[in-house]
């Protein structure tokens, strides 16, 4: 077998290991899905009436649901990514990773296994959250191209955030640190176009919101799901995701090869 075949096989073995871990920690998966669902309910039923009225052109709860649903999907992805940092850090503190490192395993296999496991979890979580949004009355207007775009951007975002969290998990010296450092991923969407239009913010904040990666990603997703053309936002979104993925893939690889402190 070639090196590539071995790399694929080892990654598959590691993916199966990650999936087993997830099945044995169902509470974590439930929490990952529960958290965005609570956000969704909160934003639609608690804030939705008022927030909807504040949307450009005015509107109601239903309009706000359409506005916020894509943002909640993005939060779902961030939430799954966060758990990956914890998995990775937990693994690194347990001796098994040292064992892997003394074995002739294709180098990125372990990390790829984590990432693929997270993607599987993302698919599950996003599907559940989307289904609940639809139950609440959300009706995406996307055609085939729109859905393809939405799935594409969700996948790219998931890849970027997961590799970022893999790197953060490896960089953390403890599981506690690993569960804290990526929390900014849950905060950043609040300073973006996720929950309110950026032009309703004070000038300085609006500038930050308009220029941070979550805004083009959320705007692209929102456009795709609404059956509109995302325009240049799509390029910014793809650019950011690819940039973060590449940098964090490289960073994670370095951290993994690094001599552990202990």
């Amino acid at each position: 077998m070639s090196t590539m075949t071995y790399a694929a096989r080892d990654s598959y073995t590691m993916l199966r290991r990650s999936l087993k871990h997830m099945r044995r920690y169902p509470s974590l998966t439930l929490m990952l899905i529960g958290q965005p669902v609570i956000f969704l309910l909160l934003f639609v039923y608690v804030f939705g009436g008022t927030m909807g009225a504040g949307l450009p052109g005015g509107g109601g709860r239903a309009d706000y649901l359409a506005y916020v649903a894509p943002a909640i999907l993005v939060m779902t992805i961030a939430s799954v990514a966060l758990s990956t940092a914890i998995y990775v850090a937990k693994d690194a503190t347990e001796g098994i990773v040292d064992r892997f490192r003394t074995m002739p395993i294709a180098r990125p296999a372990l990390l790829t296994g984590h990432v693929l496991g997270a993607l599987a979890q993302t698919v599950l979580a996003v599907t559940v959250v989307l289904a609940i949004a639809v139950l609440l009355g959300y009706r995406p207007d996307a055609g085939v191209a729109g859905w393809a775009g939405a799935i594409g951007i969700l996948a790219l975002l998931s890849l970027a955030l997961t590799w970022l969290c893999v790197a953060l998990g490896l960089a953390a010296q403890s599981v506690e640190t690993a569960s804290n450092t990526p929390l900014f991923l849950m905060i950043l969407p609040f300073v973006s176009s996720a929950f309110v239009p950026t032009d309703s913010m004070p000038t300085g904040l609006a500038w930050v919101a308009e220029n941070q990666p979550f805004t083009p990603v959320i705007d692209t997703l929102r456009a795709c799901l609404a059956g509109r053309d995302p325009g240049s936002d799509a390029w910014w979104a793809i650019g950011w995701c690819v940039l973060v993925t590449v940098l964090c893939f490289w960073w994670a690889g370095r951290l993994f090869g690094r001599v552990r402190a202990v």
Partner: peptide, 14 residues
């Protein structure tokens, strides 16, 4: 090589 380190290197969830 095969290595059995000083500290347990098993996957406790499996």
């Amino acid at each position: 090589i095969g290595v059995t380190g000083q500290f347990s290197a098993i996957d406790e969830l499996l």
